[in-house]
């Protein structure tokens, strides 16, 4: 291959690679994913609540420190594997007697081999922070299988309490729930920076070090191989972007 052709090919592949790398980073930073806003402090405190039914509606009061878009609750549908039930989360202001603020669509829970299946109940629009809410779960009256939710002991959610049919249960009991917010990493960064600056600095330093290692690896390729590839500074951009995309896919799409 003539030298000008080789240079032209390197320029084209370099440009394609640069665009691909930028595309990957944009995807990783820009695609919205669901971030949990709370976690159980002690998973060992989780117990099975129920069976719940249309006559004994389970609910939980809670305060939201951040705006949220979904609520996720571990659900167990009794009966043979594959048995299903359609549930709905209804959000009220402050208490069981408060006005309905939002309602999720019917969401199917299926009996699985696991003890619980985490069901996401998305609300039609984002709910504001700083309010006190009450969430209750509609259980279909026609369901022929017992349905259980997960609850916790030891006041895992100090801002609220577990209620059954509008009445508080034992002190310190809470529904096992997680509020989620749909945001991209780029949108989430300011929150992380405020909450845990050290973690953000470690993350950025890690990206920089991986980038340096990637450039060093690209520069170390044998000359006869590098002839066919873009300049090492361009080539070295690819591995960190691919790694970031792989982590993103693994953590948010596969697992």
């Amino acid at each position: 291959m003539s030298w000008p052709t080789l240079v032209a090919r390197q320029a084209v592949t370099g440009a394609v690679l640069t665009v691909a790398v930028l595309g990957l980073w944009c995807a990783v930073l820009g695609i919205p994913v669901e971030w949990p806003l709370n976690a159980y402090r002690n998973e060992h405190a989780v117990f099975r609540l129920g069976p719940v039914s249309a006559d004994v509606l389970p609910g939980q009061t809670f305060g939201a420190a951040e705006p949220f878009d979904l609520i996720a609750v571990p659900v167990k549908v009794g009966g043979p594997l594959g048995s299903a039930a359609d549930l709905r989360a209804r959000l009220r202001a402050e208490s069981p007697r408060g006005a309905v603020v939002a309602e999720s669509a019917l969401t199917r829970a299926v009996s699985t081999a696991h003890s619980f299946q985490v069901i996401h109940f998305p609300f039609p629009e984002s709910l504001p922070a700083g309010e006190q809410y009450y969430v209750e779960f509609d259980v279909p009256r026609e369901s022929s299988w017992p349905i259980y939710l997960a609850a916790t002991q030891g006041d895992q959610a100090p801002s609220g309490e577990l209620l059954m049919q509008g009445n508080p249960t034992f002190a310190g009991e809470d529904l096992a729930y997680q509020l989620l917010r749909r945001q991209s990493i780029r949108e989430r960064l300011p929150t992380w920076w405020g909450d845990s600056r050290g973690a953000v600095i470690v993350g950025l330093a890690l990206v920089v070090l991986l980038q340096l290692a990637s450039w060093a690896a690209a520069a170390g390729l044998p000359t006869h191989v590098r002839h066919w590839l873009p300049h090492y500074l361009v080539l070295g951009l690819a591995p960190p972007a691919l790694l970031a995309a792989a982590y993103f896919a693994l953590f948010f799409l596969v697992l």
């Binding site: 669901e34 159980y40 998973e43 003890s115 299946q117 985490v118 997960a150 697992l255």
Partner: peptide, 20 residues
């Protein structure tokens, strides 16, 4: 063994569990 791990049984986010 990660894909077969029990992560996700009680949490809505595997990544958060892994972070924990």
């Amino acid at each position: 063994a990660l894909p077969n791990s029990p992560f996700g049984e009680l949490t809505a986010s595997t990544v958060q569990t892994l972070f924990d």
